[in-house]
Design a protein around this nucleic acid. Structure first.
Lengths: 143, 143
DNA sequence: CGATCATATGTAATAACATTACACATCGGT
DNA sequence: ACCGATGTGTAATGTTATTACATATGATCG
């Protein structure tokens, strides 16, 4: 019923670590979290991450060298996923947009490019953090 | 007349290295290329790269930790640039698409996200390399 | 059962990428 | 001559990822 059934111990531990986290984690942060579970070396984390990515349960955020649990592990019909990453609070929004996909597909076909993996990442500030920052600039108004 | 006029020696050297290269270069590759010009430390490269990116003369390819010279340093009207990166030959196609930009802009506005930098990178095989690979799979036909 | 093959694991070492910290230099404007 | 902004040189360190090699686990098949 659940894809996690097939996971090995190490893979399950890494996925749990990511699931429990607020935002994206670096491989070494995951390693530290799993010391008590017997993890000793980076490779243990990277190997689990590789498998989890292969299964579509985890995504790698290329622009910040970190990993997140997929928020919709059941939808495998879209290959192209975009991320909005808040640099302040670390929150990540995962979304897919068929028009976006189609638009890139058009370019790819026109140039006979054979895509393997596509990365779309917007870094910036989420609504909440952007608000908080505005407040700092012009304080004492929303009281 | 030319933006390069304002560049310092280090910045100019780094830009030349990238301009002369076939494809993207890592910071450490650039460092090695510039040893004879007096470069000794990574920071010299990274500082120059920072400035060149700021000036829009160089782009960073987040998904492969490498840098390329901008192919159209004069066009500053588009902020959103996409890259198609061939993993075989290393060739990089730089393109921008207003519909793509608009589509992401729609999402961003809807979620009141304040974007700082957007990364769009397609890794795969360019037409030539994809052809070459197909030839290996089913040989002896194009003679 | 035992041979074999694919997959997963443990560990150490090393490679590759990037930043911090501090001292000094250069140059334009007052 | 002084000041401030920007750039440079160098060493050390921090962070991210891979290579290499030995061992283990588990499924399949004769």
């Amino acid at each position: 019923m659940n894809a996690q059934v097939d996971l090995t111990r190490n893979q399950a531990l890494v996925l749990q670590a990511l699931d429990g986290a607020e935002g994206p984690l670096s491989a070494y942060t995951i390693l530290d979290k799993l010391r008590d579970d017997g993890f000793r070396a980076p490779l243990q984390v990277y190997r689990a991450l590789d498998k989890l990515q292969e299964l579509g349960l985890v995504h790698r955020l290329e622009s910040i060298n970190a990993f997140v649990a997929c928020c919709q592990p059941h939808r495998h019909d879209h290959e192209m996923i975009a991320f909005a990453i808040c640099g302040k609070c670390g929150n990540v929004d995962e979304f897919s947009d068929s028009m976006l996909e189609e638009r890139l597909g058009t370019w790819v076909r026109a140039h006979r490019f054979k895509p393997a993996k596509t990365t779309i990442e917007i870094r910036g500030a989420c609504a909440d953090c952007a608000d908080a920052e505005r407040e700092l600039e012009s304080p004492a108004r929303s009281n």
